[in-house]
Structures are given as C-alpha cells and as structure tokens.
Nucleic acid binder design. Structure first.
Lengths: 255, 255
DNA sequence: GGAATGATTGCGTATTGCGCAAAAAATGGC
DNA sequence: GCCATTTTTTGCGCAATACGCAATCATTCC
C-alpha cells in the first residue's frame, strides 16, 4: 500500500505531535483540560503524554502548572540542517554587502570537485558580474573553491589535481599542482582567497568560507566584480560577513 | 515516589527524542544504520519511529534516503511562548532607547484588567521615573493599557468600565466611558498612546504595543518621563523599537 | 466551608509497539 | 554487468506498554 507508506504508524507519536501543535496555537500557557478537549484525548492520556514530553524537554509547565512548548524545540530547531536556513541567514548579509560594495555577491556550496552557485544578489548597475544560480564551477578556478581545497589539505589537493587534471579556463588559471597548492595554503593562512581572472578574463573575486555549528564548512561567500573595480578593502567586509553568518549558523570559533 | 514524578513514562517518546537528538549531532543527514547504532534500537524499531516522526514532520529524508531534522521543529521552536524570549529580545532595544532618550523604558504585560511591569531600564540620572518590576497598574491609567483596550474593541472597553468603575488616580485620569473610549480608539488609530499624568501627577508616558508571531499583543513598551521632559519626537523612536521587537518575535504585519 | 471542577494516580485490559527474521533494495567490488 | 554483502523495509506473533475508567487528590469559586 504505497500511499500509506510514509504515514505515521505509531499512535502515541501522533498524539504527542497533536498536543504540541495544540499548545503552539495558544500564545499563553494552556490548561490540561483545554488540551484534552482540543485533541480529543482522555485527560489522563494527555497528562501522561505531556509528562513524557516534559521529561524530554519538548514541553514545560509554568508556575501555575499550565503547559507551554519547551526549550528543546528551540535547540533542535536551531540545528536544522537545510539549505533553506543557510539561504535565509545569508541573504540579509548578502544584500547589505551588495548595497555597500555595489557588486555581485555569491553564495556557493561545494559538491565534490565543483562549487554550485546556490544564491546571488546582484547590484542595480548595468555592468555587473552575473552567475547563473544552479550553475557550477571547478574548485580550482574559484576563490572559495581554493579555500575549500586548502581546508581539505595537501593530499586532498593532490587527489583533486589527479582527478581533474586542472583544466585551464583562462591564461590565469592555476594549472600546475605546486601553483595550486601554494595558492590554496596561502588562502587558508589569510582567511580569504582571490580569483584573479582564473575562471573568466575580466572577472575578479574575493571569497571567504562560512562554517556551521559543527565547525564544518557550510558554504562559500564571495564578491565578484570586473577586475578593474575590485578593491582590497572589501576583504575585511567580506570576512566580517562570513564570520557573522557563521555565528548565526551556530559556529563557535573557540570550540 | 516523588523523584520519579516528572520522569518520562512513555518509552516510545523517549526513543523518538533519542533519535532526534542523535540526528542533531550530525551536520549532514544520517543513515538508518548509524542511528540504530547510536541509539541501541533495532533497525526496524528505529525505522518505524523515524517514519512516524517523518509523518509528523519532525524528521525528513534527503534525496538519498538519509535522515535529518524536519521543519516542524523550526516552526514549533519559533513559537515558544516564554517570557524569557520576550525579555531577551526586548532588553537590547530598551537599553538602546534608554540611552538615546535618557528616560525610563518599561516593558509590561496585560493580565486581566491590569498591566504588570515586567521589565525596566532606567537612565543614569538622579531624577527619573521608577516603576517597581512586578507591580501593577490599571489599564485605563496607562498608555499601553489604553492601546490594549482599544485593540479589544468598544464592547471590551465598556465591560472593563463596568467591572472597574474607572477609579480616578489623578485629576487627569479618564473617568468617564466616552472619554476613555475616545482616547483608546484615537490611540489605536495613531499607533501609540499617551499617559498625560493619568496615573501619577508629574509623570507622562508614551506607549506602543509589541505583537508576537500569532499577531496577538505580546506586551507593551513605553517611555516614562517627568511630564515637562517628555518629547513628541520620541514617538517615532518608540514605534520603531516596537516594530523591530515585534518582527524579531516573528510578527508579520502583512499577514 | 463546601460544592464543583481540574489534575493526578491505580489498576486492569487489550491494543499497540517491538524485534526477529525474511524479503527487498542498495551498494560496492571484481 | 554480476554477485556478494550490507542496508533498508516489511510481515508477523507476542507481551509489554499505552490507555482510559474511575477513584482520589488538589484547586477554585461561590
């Protein structure tokens, strides 16, 4: 019966979910009687389920004994691992940066040997760098890709070079392993990377990494501009934005 | 057995909580086998519980079939109704306002026919308005109380007047129903209210409302000053702070 | 102070969750 | 591409657990 395949099969989990949903509909803590009525459960049943939820911190009781949602939901909610959160958290910073710097801001995610353009914010000027969301670029020709490789270490860089043969995209592409290694490690040390017309002639980028709560790289953030417009003073702004986004995703550098 | 009184009594809720906790420890979606190992549950047991959690949107599967936390946790997490959040969200705004305006900023919550002073920030000057946290004031003599009454509508104002008889606290207290109704409705229209020495001679306030994610009034925010120091240009600042706090609590005015 | 209402607990029951084993599906090595 | 291995999913029988009634306790209201 395929259409029931993903349907809930455990009654008490459904009931627990109903109770939490009922609580969430109220802006103030709720009485047991109200929850029992809202869910159609016997008061004793509602009582037992609620107290199991309390033990697991999904629900709390206030000083009067009324029920409200518990902190565990907030904690687990903060740990959701979806691209949606990354995008939602990053977009305001990207918009602010785009406004401030007047150039295109890209958000990318690593997928194997490429980065995927996951989101972008473009400036309101006729001449600006435009990357298609969803498109891909090899790691070695992007600023953030070189940082990701640098983070992975020299062996990973060597393996990448073997797999891909470092195809040249422009006369500036780093096509030799020593060159790439040096660039990646240098990027790691300084906390940002540059793309000096390595992917496309005329286009220069500055990139930083975004870390998540587990300390892993979540994404790359970069500003792309016509090479003659790129400015070194943007580095600090981009670094700050990357740090702020990371922090909001739960990253703690001291851990 | 008091020490087991609030302990969990429903095994499958504990197990579900364990599974969600196990998932939350990983920054990437997790395989069934891993979760089974982490929780000590039989794979078939873990499988069934996970699929009930999936039906209730606490868990999701990615394109490869691995498990991650679901959007429902984020949604419920966003709906936590605790005073702690209101206070935590509001305090920075209150402190900024206090610093900017140089007067006392109060946060109040309605409780029946009164507002309760829930939090305050006082300026570093000898002469300032000082309300005791935890103390109460009748709705009709406070700026935010009149807004709360205004929001509740004319019938609610009439019922309030009947219940309380609108006792006068100063010669400026609005003691007649028509006066009170007019003041409340006017406050609603302009989005803020004034207390013109209605609670205490010599003290003037400006108040706005704070809304929560459900669109309900969560609290009142006000600035209180000696009447001769009160300034109309504070209205815009207070309104903005009220809007910012509301937005951070998840309020969306367009919904 | 007592009646009414809401919350909590004991107890018996049967329904539900569980886990073993088998089947199906997916993965990886050759 | 095939086969072995591993992982995931499902059927089934069982007993342990969740459930709900009723009694008890606690709180609220008149």
């Amino acid at each position: 019966m395929m259409d029931t395949k993903t349907e809930s099969r455990i009654q008490v989990i459904d009931r627990a979910a109903m109770l939490m949903e009922a609580i969430s509909r109220y802006s103030k803590p709720v009485k047991l009687k109200t929850l029992s009525a809202d869910t159609g459960l016997a008061p004793s049943t509602a009582y037992r389920i609620l107290h199991s939820l309390i033990s697991n911190r999904f629900v709390e009781r206030d000083s009067k004994g009324d029920y409200r949602l518990g902190q565990r939901l907030l904690q687990l909610g903060n740990r959701l691992h979806t691209d949606i959160d990354l995008r939602a958290v990053s977009l305001p910073y990207m918009e602010a940066l785009c406004k401030q710097l007047g150039e295109t801001i890209n958000l990318t995610i690593r997928e194997g040997d490429v980065v995927i353009y996951f989101e972008k914010v473009t400036p309101n000027r006729m001449m600006h760098v435009n990357q298609i969301v969803g498109s891909r670029a090899p790691l070695h020709v992007t600023a953030v890709g070189k940082l990701m490789l640098g983070l992975a270490g020299e062996e990973a860089i060597q393996a990448y070079a073997s797999r891909t043969n470092l195809p040249a995209y422009t006369r500036n592409t780093l096509s030799s392993l020593p060159e790439l290694e040096e660039a990646c490690m240098e990027s790691m040390r300084q906390g940002y990377a540059l793309d000096n017309e390595e992917a496309e002639i005329g286009v220069g980028c500055i990139g930083v990494l975004i870390y998540d709560r587990s300390g892993n790289v979540s994404a790359g953030l970069s500003v792309s501009a016509p090479i003659e417009r790129r400015k070194d003073e943007w580095i600090a702004e981009l670094k700050r934005a990357g740090e702020d986004i990371s922090r909001q995703l739960g990253y703690r550098p001291d851990r």
